[in-house]
Design a protein around this nucleic acid. Structure first.
Lengths: 206, 206
DNA sequence: ATTCTAAACGGACTGCGGTCCGCTTAATAT
DNA sequence: ATATTAAGCGGACCGCAGTCCGTTTAGAAT
């Protein structure tokens, strides 16, 4: 078996691109470390790009050259967790990974997403802010979406599974779930139970 | 029958509050007219608060005193359309209004929301931007949500209808549907068909 | 070592949403 | 009419994301 590379949260540079200059690499590390510290100290929402530039002892232009935008920074910070998550539902053990029936995998997928949002929700929300493009068409989002669509097809749901996957994905939207969890104090188990109910009913006679 | 007042998109001032001063009323009209003109001329997303203050010949402070925020302005601009929509699903003729079976009402509700988003989607999205509070807990959103919950209950869905209504509401989220319609070019009829499918399956054996 | 150049850098600058506060004025009381 | 006062007003100001452009520097070529 050869490894298929996972879809990175930030697309890599084109293949022929020249390698990163040493000062650039050093600054990238400094920025990432500073960002993680600031997030840990003040919370995602309180971290500003100026603050980050200052803490990393780097010009503001450098921060934006590196990450493109605040959302881009947050995506980079999420990148490891995201890769892990992808590995689990693509290659991992059942019921999340291959081997279980599609309905079970779908239920497990939702449960895993809920746990993911509990842990990384603020980052995920910040990574999607200020652009429907970021929210709906970021590579990992497209991948989740296709995964759900694939499971729906395998479960025998043949009527426009792509749009149905969109609807199910909407239910699992980080901002929405985070709001339920934090602002309304809904227990994660209750979210999971409702997801199970939804999927079960949807795939009842397929 | 006596009329129950609809839930306003922006809550009115408390009952004992003094009436609006005449200059304030004049400025409010000027602002609303200017806002509608600017939206018509440049599109929702291009309208800035400074622009609006300038066009209405009013200080910037006045704009924010009146509407609180950009989102508040957009809610006010939506208010009439929103009231109409509420009237239709609460008092209007079936299948959207009372009289039809709950499943049919739910399907009609989604279809009406799709038409609403086709017409007012940009405004609705701008009215929800920059705050999960605006997006999820604005009075009209809470009303839609309760309406869906009520229909689910009447249809016999008894397992946590509140959360299930949240999931269905997520499917009908303006930003999401607008993105499908505009960025992906999905036909409204296709969205409607998928919604019908979703509701039908969900309520199959209730 | 010197030269060359494209990448990287930094920080002043812009535009926007939103706030603050000293001034003005509509409405009321006398 | 005049005085009183609280609501309303306006625009300077702030913080933030994101851009621009003159300067610096890493790394290659000689």
């Amino acid at each position: 078996m050869f490894l298929v590379s996972l879809i990175p949260i930030r697309p890599e540079l084109p293949f022929g691109a020249p390698p990163e200059r040493s000062d650039a690499a050093r600054n990238r590390e400094r920025l990432l470390q500073a960002a993680r510290e600031l997030v840990a100290e003040h919370g995602v929402d309180a971290v500003t790009m100026d603050m980050l530039a200052c803490r990393a002892d780097v010009g503001k232009g450098t921060v934006f050259r590196r990450f493109g935008s605040r959302a881009g920074l947050m995506m980079t910070l999420l990148s490891d967790a995201e890769s892990d998550f992808q590995r689990q539902f693509i290659f991992g053990p059942p019921p999340l990974g291959p081997g279980a029936p599609p309905r079970e995998r779908l239920i497990a997928f939702g449960e895993a997403r809920i746990k993911y949002v509990e842990e990384y929700g603020e980052l995920a929300r910040a990574a999607a802010e200020h652009s429907p493009q970021n929210r709906h068409d970021a590579p990992p989002v497209v991948l989740w979406h296709r995964h759900i669509e694939m499971l729906l097809r395998k479960a025998g749901l043949d009527r426009d599974p792509w749009l149905m996957a969109l609807s199910l994905g909407a239910t699992l939207d980080p901002e929405r779930m985070l709001h339920s969890l934090r602002a309304h104090g809904i227990a994660p188990e209750r979210l999971a139970a409702s997801w199970r109910e939804l999927v079960t009913r949807l795939l009842k006679d397929c």
